[in-house]
Amino acid sequence: MKNLILLLASIAILPQVDGEIPNSISCTPKQCYTAFEIRASFQTAVDMCEKIDGHLMSVRYSASNDAMGELLRDAEGEFWIGLQFNGNGCTDTSRLRRYVWITGDTLTNFTNWSDGDSEPFCAPTCVSVSRDLKWKGRSCDKIMDGFLCEHDRTKVCAPLEPRETDESVHYITPFGNEGEGPTMLPMGSVVTGRPSGVKHICTPDGVWLRAPWSCEVLNGGCEHKCVTKTPQCTCPAGTALQRNNITCTPNDACVNLGCEQLCLAGACLCRDGYELLADGKGCRDKDECRDTMICPNSNCVNTIVTPTSNYTKDVTSAVTAGGLLGITVCVVLMILIIVFLAHQISRRRSSWNIACMLKSPGEDLQDLQQVTTQKYTKKSSFVNRNVKQDT
């Protein structure tokens, strides 16, 4: 708890310089540095760095020089650093050439003086740098394009790598800087995993603490309300706490998950024939041949599942587009033939019914008598022919 209170105090004394957020930040294991693209004289730059609990940057080691290179990678113009002429003569052959760090000492294991483009020594000059990182003497009253601050009273946390379920991390520092990717950050920085939403804060011990943390510090990292006793995040009515324990979603936990296929109780699932991707949302075809329980021998053919349905097909017997067209034509022809035959049968039955309806009962009797007479006549003729043959 003591460390978290110290963290709260540290965050409180890091106001922004005149409302400006540093253009860049870079940290080594021992300190952090910030770059401000604010036009200022040397003394104005000194005052501004002190407002955010720092001082103008000292470049005593090659590691500091590397950090300065990160700060100025995309910068234009010249920036003040914390080195100024001490005014005690012009014949000093030391590495700092009668210059002194803003902290009042001359300790250094590194220099990078420019051979040219510097104002004369033995004058009230201060040192500026640009993207070439060369030290150049300039009149201390000159207005430079910006300045570099050093924060050596802050603890630094090692880069926090994304969790297995996250694709990236997003960070925000106490100075207001935001960015993507793992990097060393000062205490009070908050890193959020994406898409999980899991948060960590850099503590004064130089370690990452997962949210929810003490409610007095940035609301414990909670999206809604932090309960101080545990600490624990709570959500308003109609919403539920997500698995990251800090953010709230509608009671239907599946609403904002973005599952590709199925969702159950806040977890993404896949249909038969698919397996879940590493992001916990997407699905891909499952190669059943890798499962020895399903395919115990080498005679295995994987089935391909279409992305839009549960329909499966064997890759060795797929129907070609031409074959499918031929089947379609045959089916259409058979349907047309059946319709034609049904139509013809219907017409014949209709004509028979009409003929029967037009005949009267008397006509039917005459037709019967005529048929009977014809049969009798044919029989008599047959008998007469037989008699003639006997005579």
Rank of each mutant, 00 (worst) to 15 (best):
G181F: 01
A267I: 08
D105Q: 12
W352F: 09
V169H: 02
G220I: 12
L241C: 10
L262N: 15
Y99N: 13
M57Y: 00
N88R: 15
D390S: 14
C90Y: 04
V305Y: 06
N256E: 14
T34Q: 11
L14E: 09
M68G: 04
D285W: 03
S62N: 10
V198P: 00
K2C: 04
L325Y: 06
S114G: 14
T377G: 05
L341V: 14
V331H: 05
D74C: 01
V100S: 13
D152L: 03
E178L: 06
T308M: 10
D287F: 02
D291G: 04
T373D: 09
E78T: 06
G87I: 14
G104N: 12
R131T: 13
N109E: 15
W80T: 07
I201C: 00
V190F: 00
V46H: 02
I21Q: 10
E37H: 13
W113R: 12
K225M: 13
D18G: 03
T292A: 08
Q232N: 07
E288A: 10
G258Y: 04
P186N: 07
K30F: 12
V17F: 00
L185H: 08
E78V: 10
L365H: 13
R194K: 11
E260Q: 15
T34M: 09
S346R: 15
G273R: 04
G89I: 05
P231W: 02
V331G: 07
C263R: 04
I102C: 04
A355Y: 11
A63R: 09
C226F: 09
T203Q: 08
W101F: 12
D53E: 13
Y61H: 13
G323W: 01
N3Q: 12
T308Q: 08
I13G: 08
A63P: 00
A278Q: 13
C300Y: 03
I102W: 01
L72G: 02
N251H: 02
T103V: 05
K51Y: 02
T203Y: 03
S26D: 06
K155M: 09
T93A: 14
G282K: 11
T249F: 02
R347N: 12
L257R: 12
S62T: 14
G89Y: 03
C32R: 00
D74E: 14
S64G: 03
A123P: 01
G326H: 08
G193V: 07
L276C: 08
G206T: 02
